[in-house]
């Protein structure tokens, strides 16, 4: 990268660079604070919020995991996230492939039609969705929430994967056709393995989005045993205001919620940022 690509008007640059590093430090501090506070006692968190704990106390974690239901919530979340993101990618991939390979008005129209869903705020659909689910007795049911998750993440996944399949060359399908492989056989045996990168990105982005999802859960889940992690956190905050605060356990719950995402990000960070910004930079 060339060294003279940026305006450099004397003092602006050092000030800017300092601002960038301050911003970075603040982000790092926020996450360190939450993780460290998860092994501090409540009084330490309140009285010496800036200090390290005298001795790390993992009792917070077991109280959060067992007594406050974060363990059960983590299990619910994990099951929901895995099933919903696998299913949404599973049903979107064939659709995206079909849309990317057929030319003409119908295909272009349907692609647009799916993309439309990206622009519709969830607030528009949640209330009618509530009565549809109520009709089938699927309120306060993890299966109901699973269906809603799949439906609400379809537009994004179809959009992402259509762009991805478009970038794959046609020649292989022509060769497969000459060899007498059926169209669906071509998709399942040739194109899917080729599309692995795009599918993994789609899975990853859906998993992150669903892990952190709150609004739909808040609307469609009522009882504690069906809570996801976000709901358990909200429930915990609201309960504490009655019972006096166990901030240690709160931050243990917070850490249970963020650690899997942080580890995923450390592991596959480039893929996540590139996936989220894919196609936008072009």
């Amino acid at each position: 990268m060339s060294t003279h690509t940026t305006p450099r008007t004397g003092v602006l640059r050092p000030i800017g660079t300092t601002a960038v590093w301050l911003f970075v430090s603040f982000c790092l501090f926020a996450f360190l604070f939450m993780l460290i506070s998860s092994v501090k006692s409540s009084s330490e968190i309140l009285n010496t919020p800036w200090s390290l704990p005298a001795a790390p106390d993992f009792g917070n974690w077991s109280r959060a995991w067992v007594d406050s239901g974060f363990g059960a919530a983590a299990t619910n979340t994990l099951v929901l996230v895995v099933t919903a993101s696998v299913v949404v990618v599973g049903v979107s991939a064939p659709a995206a492939y079909a849309l990317s390979r057929r030319r003409g008005g119908l295909s272009a129209g349907l692609t647009m039609f799916f993309a439309l869903g990206l622009g519709i705020p969830l607030q528009i659909i949640v209330l009618p969705l509530y009565s549809v689910l109520a009709e089938f007795g699927l309120i306060d049911s993890l299966f109901g929430l699973f269906l809603v998750y799949v439906a609400t993440h379809l537009p994004f996944t179809v959009f992402l994967l259509t762009g991805f399949f478009r970038s794959l060359p046609n020649e292989l399908e022509e060769a497969a056709a000459l060899d007498g492989v059926s169209a669906s056989g071509t998709f399942f045996r040739i194109m899917l393995p080729l599309a692995q990168g795009g599918l993994v990105t789609a899975l990853l982005l859906n998993a992150i989005g669903l892990w952190n999802e709150t609004l739909l859960g808040l609307m469609f889940i009522q009882s504690n045993e069906n809570y996801t992690l976000s709901l358990a956190l909200i429930g915990f905050i609201q309960q504490q205001q009655y019972n006096g605060a166990d901030y240690g356990a709160l931050f243990a719950g917070v850490s249970i919620t963020i650690l899997p995402m942080l580890l995923l990000y450390l592991w596959l960070g480039r893929r996540i940022t590139e996936g989220l910004t894919a196609g936008l930079g072009k």
Partner: peptide, 8 residues
């Protein structure tokens, strides 16, 4: 901040 729950 973009990859963790807004609740947190």
């Amino acid at each position: 901040p973009h990859i963790v729950s807004p609740i947190v």
